[in-house]
Nucleic acid binder design. Structure first.
Length: 927
RNA sequence: GGGCGAUUAGCUCAGUUGGCUAGAGCACCAGCUCGACACGCUGGGGGUCAAAGGUUCAAGUCCUUUAUCGCCCACCA
């Protein structure tokens, strides 16, 4: 396209389609295990297939793509492994809810296979959508390797891991209290529960002593019906009212069972209620823990549907609500109900059925955490895995330190089925007869009789013959079990693939802090267990995005921002830049939400936070347009940097330090700093100053070629440095630049590349660094600003030509003289005098700087009173500063204890201020 | 209850091992169609750095306490 036809406004849409296709077609995103380049690997935190991506995903994937693109440019063999997560509970719940809404059917109506099939359909739809969203954002994943946590490879990895753990006796079956939804007849996760404060009652019941029916204990409870399952009464060991009874027994009313009185300082708060607590291990989480501590029997009273079972004696078969009434009535009749009072209590409800949750004792599978957790602790403690920011290492270590066994079974249908078969009738010998010699089947006796058989392959129901039926465990594994294998299962484990050899351990994991324990810790455990090495070297924890009030973004609050909307409104670069610029080390990232109407009439949420990212790509685009217009007909020549004019050496010096600092910041995961630095360099140094400096040079054929060479080199550098953050606009510019300025003989260290996506990351020669030119240009800038300020403050007409005088001597005068033409053109001056002052103009606007007096003669335009007032104000200001500096220098402890450098600095500052004061006094004296 | 974090300009945030008159973007005010860009240019106003103590020659930065807010974990018989 001819340069002159390049649009004034950058069109992100066209660039996005075009360049993304180019990158994919050229195969830039492919990792190549056979290449001899060093590996750099990130496995994507697989998004849940429950729904579309939200802004948090956009942030995380922007971060990952920045790292990936940066490392690709640095010459690494880069692999970004994409994929999605089956997200067991969440996905099944979403699909079940949908089916219920539309077809009024429950999962029991459909049956296991049909439901699972329906969830697969859902998965296909959302996976497609999620992956296309990632592409829209510009993510450079190796798409041919896309994986899913429930695919064949992951299934194999899951089974083998379970098998190995079972074999190593790291997996066991045990009892656990789960949140039971009696209406849906399923266990629900902690995060699917909500609390409600309910007006209830507190009943006080008398438990007679076994020795002496006249004596006894008083217990208070909000759930009297559970007393049928009590197996102890607990008191505080220091409570003198009751502690004489510790070790004795009481008679459990209505049942006649004798239960012990135990001492438990954890469960019992002597100040609450009666100071005695009934202990029902099977139906209350605290009591359960108490039961474990005291090895109490656990009596399960409930059937799965919420009715009481045979353990409840005469109450068997009745619903829990009915039982409560009956128990209270019976206690009252027996004269054991001491008191009934109103009491507010918190009741747990299932989010899905809106019915009360029952703590319910059931068989579950566990992974032992002792040695696994220890290995994961060690990995972080000894630095094999580094967590950034490092404060998050604490929550990781604290959580693992508890070493609470991990309950891995879920009463769901969507997920990896537990590879366990049970057989109640067979013996060790029966199993040995059939399975002996097989390395894919192991077994052991269950705790309650029967055999537990674990196998990596499916076992037939009649594998042991018709007389011994094998029954497969109906449960599936916790989603995090397969997620924990993600870094190695996606690389081919358990096969010893070239990928596994080259890309494991991966380089960086980027994720949110809420899954440090759920996911990160477990990946370290399983990675270490299966691979004998950590899964990644660095973990970057990014902030959580909130709305302007500090609330999480959510569908129900309607405060969510859809990344796709931002892309539609402003383009993917804007989304990426804004997110990168916001990704500091903070833990929460607030984005004030406002709504905006789209051209198609749709109203969407957006945020002012995208403002910066919105204008920046356009600014860059226009700077590039300027450059491209001026590069037409450019004949590349080799340029010796040391011979270039000051302004060229200045911008190259800044480019070099910007590149070095940006590299350092990316290495330290300081994305916001890198984004801001690059923006500042591009906008302030390059656009505001350098481009202005060279405008005249570009009009003179004699000075044009070097200016062109430097202009092209800087634009080239800017494209490379910004490409990881804003890939599309930089590619647009790169391609256009390649047409007018083939990269040969430029002031550039890098060879050509057909796309900035694979252009080498810049490292500039140390010789480009030029403190001198930075000082000189700094001088110019300061004086330009002073003159502009004088113009603006006096509200001089725009076309008024001025002839400023810079009163300076020696080195300062020399430096300014070098920039005479620039200062003139940037201030709209017709002439500029630099040097000692011959005759002070009678009417002038004046600013006194430390090393220079800036005078703008304004014959007939000066408001003398205002001028004097300004000078007085400056004088007062200088005197205030001087007083501060002098008091510092007058303080002996300062001059003695502060570093000499700092003291010298203050001294020279004092000298400057004294000089300024003197000049101002003279000025005021003359006026 | 335990842990982590935040509190700096109207808003969103920087401020690295203590050391210039505390910075940026947005918003605000004034002026600009000057040959890349009005998604722009130039200039400007605006802050007792949550509060109170302390350490230090020097505190936005370190320590203690308090207040408010957020997140995570545990929990209210």
């Amino acid at each position: 396209m001819p340069i002159a036809d390049l649009p004034k406004q950058y069109d992100p849409r066209e660039a996005q389609d075009r360049w993304y296709r180019l990158w994919v077609d050229k195969g830039y995103f492919h990792a190549d295990p056979a290449s001899d380049k060093p590996a750099y690997t990130i496995v994507i935190p697989p998004p849940n297939v429950t729904g579309a991506l939200h802004l948090g995903h956009a942030l995380n994937n922007t971060i990952q793509d920045i790292l990936i693109r940066w490392k690709r440019m640095q010459g690494f063999d880069v692999l970004w492994m994409p994929g999605t997560d089956h997200a067991g509970i969440a996905t099944q719940a979403v699909v079940e809810r949908r089916i219920h809404e539309v077809e009024k059917k429950t999962r029991h109506d459909l049956g296991r296979d049909a439901l699972v099939e329906r969830i697969w359909e859902w998965k296909d739809e959302y996976e497609k959508r999620i992956l296309s969203q990632l592409r829209m954002m510009g993510c450079s994943c190796d798409w041919d390797r896309t994986r899913f946590t429930l695919d064949e490879g992951c299934s194999l990895a899951v089974r083998l891991t379970f098998f190995k753990l079972f074999q190593a006796d790291q997996i066991y079956r045990g009892k656990r209290l789960v949140n039971w939804d009696a209406h849906l007849r399923t266990a629900v996760a902690d995060d699917e529960i909500y609390y409600e404060d309910v007006q209830g009652q507190l009943w006080t019941i008398r438990y007679p002593s076994a020795d002496d029916p006249e004596k006894g204990l008083l217990v208070a409870t909000t759930r009297p019906e559970t007393m049928l399952g009590d197996t102890a009464v607990a008191v505080h060991p220091d409570d003198e009212r009751w502690n004489s009874l510790i070790g004795r027994e009481v008679v459990l009313p209505l049942t006649g069972r004798k239960i012990p009185v135990i001492a438990d300082p954890i469960l019992v708060d002597p100040a609450f209620g009666t100071g005695c607590v009934k202990v029902t291990p099977a139906h209350d989480p605290n009591d359960y823990q108490t039961g474990l501590r005291h090895r109490l029997p656990m009596i399960n009273l409930l059937n799965p549907d919420g009715t009481f079972n045979e353990n409840a004696g005469k109450y068997a078969g009745l619903d829990r609500k009915v039982v409560r009434k009956q128990v209270v009535a019976d206690l009252e009749a027996a004269g054991l109900l001491v008191k009934t009072e109103a009491y507010n209590t918190r009741v747990n409800y299932s989010d899905r059925s809106k019915t009360p949750i029952e703590p319910y004792l059931s068989d579950q599978w566990f992974v032992r955490m002792d040695s696994l957790a220890q290995q994961a602790i060690d990995a972080v403690a000894d630095g094999r895995v580094r967590i950034h920011p490092d404060r998050y290492a604490k929550s990781y270590l604290d959580w693992l330190g508890e070493k609470r066994d991990w309950c891995i079974s879920r009463q769901l249908w969507w997920g990896h089925r537990i590879p366990i078969w049970t057989c109640d009738t067979c013996t060790e010998a029966d199993l040995a007869r059939v399975f002996a010699g097989r390395d894919d089947v192991v077994w052991r006796a269950g705790e309650m009789g029967g055999m537990l058989i674990c196998s990596t392959v499916d076992l037939a129901e009649d594998a042991l013959g018709p007389e011994h039926r094998l029954v497969r465990d109906p449960d599936v594994l916790d989603t995090w079990f397969s997620s924990a294998l993600w870094p190695h299962s996606t690389l081919g484990w358990p096969e010893r693939t070239p990928e596994l050899a080259k890309y494991y351990p991966t380089s960086v994991l980027s994720t949110a802090r809420d899954i440090i324990t759920l996911w990160v810790a477990r990946m370290v455990m399983f990675g270490t267990f299966n691979m004998n090495d950590v899964p990644f070297r660095d973990v970057f924890i990014h902030p959580v995005i909130q709305d302007g009030q500090g609330r999480r973004m959510s569908k129900s609050l309607g405060n969510g921002i859809d990344p796709v909307d931002i892309i539609e409104l402003h383009g993917a670069d804007t989304l990426r830049f804004a997110l990168a610029a916001a990704a500091t080390e903070t833990q929460d990232l607030r984005m004030p939400v406002e709504s905006q109407k789209l051209p198609d009439g749709r109203v969407v949420n957006t945020s002012e936070k995208f403002e910066q990212g919105r204008t920046f790509p356009n600014k860059l685009w226009n700077a590039a347009r300027f450059a491209l217009m001026n590069l037409e007909g450019f004949e590349p020549t080799t340029v010796d940097v040391s011979t270039l004019p000051v302004e060229d050496r200045w911008i190259l010096s800044l480019l070099a330090s910007t590149a070095a600092e940006t590299t350092r910041e990316l290495e330290a995961f300081q994305f916001a700093e890198a984004a801001k630095r690059l923006r500042d360099f591009t906008w302030n140094d390059f656009c505001d100053w350098y481009v202005e400096f060279i405008k005249t040079r570009l009009r003179d054929p004699a000075t044009k070629p070097t200016a062109q060479a430097v202009l092209a080199a800087v634009l080239d550098g800017i494209c490379r440095l910004l490409h990881p953050i804003i890939p599309f606009v930089t590619e647009s510019i790169w391609q256009a630049l390649g047409e007018v300025a083939p990269r040969r003989g430029l002031v550039s260290i890098e060879p050509a590349a057909e796309s900035v996506c694979v252009a080498p990351w810049p490292i500039y020669p140390g010789a480009w660094s030029s403190a001198d030119s930075e000082r000189i240009v700094g001088q110019w800038q300061e004086k330009v600003a002073a003159i502009r300020n004088l113009r603006a403050e006096r509200q001089l007409p725009n076309h008024a030509k001025i002839a400023p005088i810079l009163v300076a001597e020696g080195e300062v005068a020399e430096m300014l003289e070098l920039g005479n033409a620039f200062i003139r053109s940037l201030t709209g001056a017709s002439s500029l005098q630099i040097g000692p002052l011959d005759v002070r103009p009678s009417e002038a606007a004046v600013t006194v700087l430390a090393d220079c007096e800036v005078i703008v003669p304004l014959e007939g335009l000066v408001d003398k009173e205002a001028e004097i007032a300004r000078r007085r104000k400056s004088l007062a200001d200088v005197e205030k500063q001087l007083a501060a500096v002098e008091s510092k220098l007058a303080n002996p402890s300062f001059t003695e204890r502060a570093p000499a450098e700092l003291v010298d600095q203050q001294r020279s500052k004092r000298d400057e201020l004294l000089h300024q004061r003197e000049s101002l006094r003279q000025l005021l004296g003359e006026a």
